[in-house]
Design a protein around this nucleic acid. Structure first.
Lengths: 159, 159
DNA sequence: CTGCTACTTGAAGTTCACTTCAACTCAAGG
DNA sequence: CCTTGAGTTGAAGTGAACTTCAAGTAGCAG
């Protein structure tokens, strides 16, 4: 069992065969073919699929994942060092995402007592109405993460 | 300015008018109408929109958000206590999500050194091949969060 | 060789969360 | 009153990430 069929790769990775074919069309993974045109996956592909799944957990689009995978060497099977490099980058992204959610959690916690959902206002006992005061524009406390999440404006004028 | 036009609500919430109309069709927010059939939003709707945005940041589907909002009283404007209750629930969900991501981060960190992406194996120096040994089935270290994320199997057989 | 399961393809369908469009009406300042 | 920007509708379109389908072929156990 040097190589895996699509069914085997699917079973091991937990990714549906249809999704694996889709990933191949999208250039995320690769397969060789038997004389009868069936796909055979090198065991190294399993690692690529793992990587894709981890990235998706973090909330990264397939486009971005493809880009990341493109930084792997094409002429040879990626080494552990190669994966190590990518993983490290991933960890950083993951930490960013966690930090944003923690901030949101903490702000929300501070607001639970009053239920206002106007986080800035509640937390800072913000005097006056900054938006109505014009000038600085909407206060956005969260920055986009991984270009995925729409910026969240947590300072609407309430009450 | 007792009520807001759709443009005003859009500006204050950062949500496009088309999205606000969509949310109304979907039963997430409500609006009254002028004699000329234009929407007028009660200021309380701003809080609903804030809630929707926060929930989306956490990664919750509109279906689930609608369900959460449905637990608000329909016959009266929600009080701060009502929002406080929902926020608390949200904070819990958020914490769950954070915990999952932290676990993923930590496992990934432990794996960066070797680049194997086979987290279970790497971390536990798992003797033998549990999947090939049959029996226990794939090891899934992450549970689904909010029914959103496909379960991530981080124990494919690598090497 | 038979039979069976797994595999192949391209095209079309699905879900989510919206956006865009066309054709029209409203509201408010000058 | 007139103009102009903001608002109205239903229907159709978008993009991401797949899944489903139909009709056919491969691979392998017996």
């Amino acid at each position: 069992m040097e190589t895996l069929t699509i069914g085997e790769l699917s079973a091991r990775s937990g990714v549906a065969p249809s999704a694996l074919r889709f990933y191949e069309r999208e250039g995320l993974i690769h397969a060789s073919r038997t004389s009868g045109n069936q796909r055979r996956y090198d065991r190294a592909e399993l690692r690529r699929v793992s990587f894709i799944k981890i990235a998706q957990q973090v909330g990264v689009s397939l486009d971005e994942i493809r880009e990341a995978l493109a930084s792997l060497p094409e002429n040879r099977t990626p080494t552990k060092a190669d994966w190590s490099r990518l993983s490290a980058r991933w960890r950083y992204r993951l930490q960013e995402r966690i930090t944003v959610l923690e901030r949101l959690r903490d702000e929300l916690s501070g607001c639970i007592g009053c239920g206002c959902l106007s986080l800035q206002r509640c937390k800072l006992a913000n005097p006056g109405d900054r938006l109505a005061a014009g000038g600085t524009g909407p206060q956005r406390i969260l920055n986009p993460v991984l270009d995925l999440n729409p910026v969240l404006d947590l300072n609407p004028i309430l009450d």
